[in-house]
Amino acid sequence: MLRRSLLIPLLLYCCALPLPALQSQWQPRDPGMDFGSGSAHGEKQWVQMESPQDWTLPSGRPQVLALNFQVDDGLHVNSHTPRSPYLIPTTLTLDAPAGVHVTGLQYPQAKDAHFVSKDTQSVYMGALPILVHLQARPGVYSVQGKLRYQACDNQMRVCNPPRTLLFTLRVTAR
């Protein structure tokens, strides 16, 4: 009788022990730590990802996802096929897990721009949609993506160093 009556409070006591630890997880998250997409070192980005990162699509059939990026106002990035071998092309890389097969990428039509120099440059400005052709088996997948680009201002006064925008797509195929 004595053992039983002691056992219940003791169990309650043990359950209550982790409460302070749990409370630390309930506190609001530091907004600075909330990365939906970003760079490897938390560097400033000049291209932002605007499309949703959660995708639901029919399984077993070819699908096209439109990944929408946005180049910051007043800037441009080189197209996927710049006119000089020294310029850094905009390149999307997707690391697809087993079950997801990326069959192709379709970059938007580039603009031919003449800035300060006489050279014609092949660039993207403003909206930058990239189409991803893929097919997936039923399941939920995490696809890691990287957009590498190099931006300059439209007055061609300053060029920013190359950056890689990292993001994760959550693909649900049914």
Partner: peptide, 10 residues
């Protein structure tokens, strides 16, 4: 400067 920097080339 850098080879990828158009104003540097200018």
């Amino acid at each position: 400067w850098a080879t990828w920097c158009a104003p540097c080339k200018l």
